[in-house]
Amino acid sequence: MQKIRTARFQIGDVVKHRVYPFRGVIFDVDPTFSNTDEWYEAIPEAMRPSKDQPFYHLYAENAESEYVAYVSEQNLEPDDSGMPIRHSEVEETLVATDDGGYRLPPAQFH
């Protein structure tokens, strides 16, 4: 029986990559790896993360661009810079909080 781990981060948390120079805000969480085998195999074997940990979907940015990233929990750490995320989709899907993070907007029922 596989043990399910509790995700360290949650939707709206601002994080940065431990190795590569990018940061982002989490907009979705997978309890374990849930991407394609091709994506996984493209990672150099020595750097491939374990699949049995949470993976995060990020609105990510680096000095040159904005994009969507899929990152294992082991490769993320909190970003406490307090700088807002400039990714264009953030304002469309998340609401900024007073503490520098983000949250989902209240549900809209019709």
Rank of each mutant, 00 (worst) to 15 (best):
D79S: 08
A96P: 11
F22A: 12
A60S: 13
R23M: 00
A42M: 00
R48K: 12
N75A: 11
D52Q: 13
F9S: 12
K3Q: 12
E66D: 10
T36Y: 03
G82S: 12
M47P: 00
H87Q: 07
E41F: 09
H87G: 11
P54S: 15
E64H: 09
A7S: 15
Y102M: 03
Y59D: 00
F9R: 06
S50W: 01
K3L: 14
Y40M: 02
T32G: 01
V71N: 06
E41C: 06
E66H: 14
V15I: 06
A63N: 06
G101K: 06
V90K: 00
W39T: 11
V25D: 01
P105D: 01
P44M: 14
Q74K: 10
D79I: 06
R8M: 10
E73S: 11
V19H: 13
P106V: 07
T36S: 15
Y102I: 06
P49E: 00
L104E: 13
M1V: 09
S65I: 04
S88M: 00
V14E: 00
R86L: 13
E91N: 10
D30Y: 09
T6R: 15
P21I: 14
H17W: 05
V71Q: 10
V29K: 08
D80N: 13
G100H: 03
A46H: 08
I43E: 07
Q2G: 02
Y40W: 14
M47L: 14
E66Y: 10
M47K: 15
F33I: 00
D30V: 04
H57Q: 02
M1I: 01
E66Q: 14
R48H: 13
S50D: 15
K51S: 10
V90A: 10
P106H: 14
P44C: 11
H57K: 11
H17Y: 06
A46L: 10
E64M: 08
I4P: 04
Y59P: 03
D52I: 07
L76R: 07
Y59L: 14
E38S: 13
F109L: 13
Y20K: 15
Q108N: 13
D80M: 09
E45T: 15
F22D: 06
A7Q: 04
S65Y: 07
D13S: 09
A46W: 05
S72D: 05
A69C: 05
N75C: 07
D80I: 12
V29C: 02
D99R: 14
E41H: 08
D98L: 12
Y70M: 09
A60P: 02
S50Q: 11
Y56D: 06
Q2E: 10
G100W: 11
R48Q: 15
S88Q: 04
V19G: 11
I26W: 04
Y70L: 02
A42T: 11
T97I: 05
P21D: 12
H87Y: 07
Q10F: 04
Q2N: 10
T97F: 05
P31S: 14
I26C: 07
E73C: 05
E91I: 01
T6K: 15
D99S: 14
D99M: 08
A107C: 02
A107V: 06
D37P: 01
R23I: 07
G12P: 06
Q74S: 15
